[in-house]
């Protein structure tokens, strides 16, 4: 436990030195302040007020059977989700590669610490940092918007859990790419790339559900395989949105995501254990 804690502490110190913590906090503050001013605008407030309980005839909102206020909460949550995941990946990708730099890794591997503990310690450190940042960001946004519109969405704080689940799986892929390539840039590209692919896959699956031709076709099978191989980042976001409007969340993507996170981390540990420096 002493060694595990030492690795986590060092991840925190590194994040502080790289201004990751301050940077995330600063950007979160800016977004919260901008949101605060947007919601001080009379036009915005009256629109929220008038239509708060009104179900619009707008196509998208009607499809979701939600109020304008719900759509607003979901929009904010989605912005937070994408922002937090992208910034989180960008800020924490270097935690693994910095550890594997020439001159640093020799020293670490000479210590009586199993290799898997370094990966797990760094991963846990990054996840705790992300949790603190996301908690501040989500709760800050929640308080500002709720005070402005005069209504408190009790499902909104649960976004923290969904964002963290999304981050956990996406970051596990970043860790694997970092271990295999030792390249910070490649790890970041992989993280963003997977996020983008997850978005395309979600669109593809959504499209095939709407236009159900009865036959799957090769594209359908490929989409299915990729869906189960890559983290379900978009499904996590959809679950988050459902939670906000009080709909039931889907458990399959959550368990699938957790399974994939464990699988990617296991692969990272196995690759790291076999790697020579």
């Amino acid at each position: 436990m002493l060694k595990f804690r030492a690795i986590i502490e060092e991840t925190f110190r590194e994040a502080r030195a790289r201004k990751t913590l301050v940077g995330f906090f600063f950007l979160s503050c800016i977004l919260i302040i901008i949101t605060f001013f947007v919601f001080q605008n009379d036009t915005v407030l009256s629109a929220m007020d008038e239509s708060a309980e009104h179900r619009p005839e707008d196509m998208a909102a009607a499809l979701l059977s939600t109020t304008v206020l719900d759509v607003m909460w979901m929009a904010i949550a989605w912005i937070l989700y994408v922002f937090a995941l992208c910034l989180g990946i960008f800020a924490s990708a270097s935690f693994i590669t910095s550890m594997m730099e020439k001159g640093a890794i020799d020293l670490l591997l000479s210590k009586p610490v199993p290799r898997w503990l370094y990966i797990l310690g760094r991963y846990t450190g990054a996840a705790i940092i992300m949790f603190l940042e996301v908690t501040f960001f989500v709760l800050g946004m929640w308080v500002v918007v709720s005070l402005s519109v005069g209504r408190w969405n009790m499902g909104f704080p649960m976004s923290i859990v969904h964002i963290m689940l999304g981050f956990a799986s996406l970051y596990s892929v970043v860790v694997l790419v970092s271990v295999l390539s030792r390249s910070n840039l490649l790890a970041i590209i992989a993280g963003f790339g997977i996020f983008f692919i997850a978005f395309l896959l979600a669109i593809g699956r959504f499209g095939s559900e709407i236009v159900d031709t009865g036959e799957k076709g090769i594209f359908g099978y490929i989409t299915d395989v990729l869906y189960y191989v890559f983290p379900q980042s978009i499904d996590m976001g959809t679950n988050m949105a459902n939670g906000i409007i009080g709909k039931d969340i889907k458990w399959t993507p959550i368990f699938l995501n957790l399974g994939l996170t464990v699988s990617y981390l296991t692969m990272s540990v196995m690759a790291f254990k076999k790697k020579e420096f």
């Binding site: 590194e14 502080r16 030195a17 730099e101 020439k102 001159g103 640093a104 020799d106 020293l107 000479s110």
Partner: peptide
């Protein structure tokens, strides 16, 4: 162990 060209976290 003291490696050659060791690199400690600079922070």
């Amino acid at each position: 162990y003291l490696p050659e060209n060791h690199r400690y976290p600079l922070h």
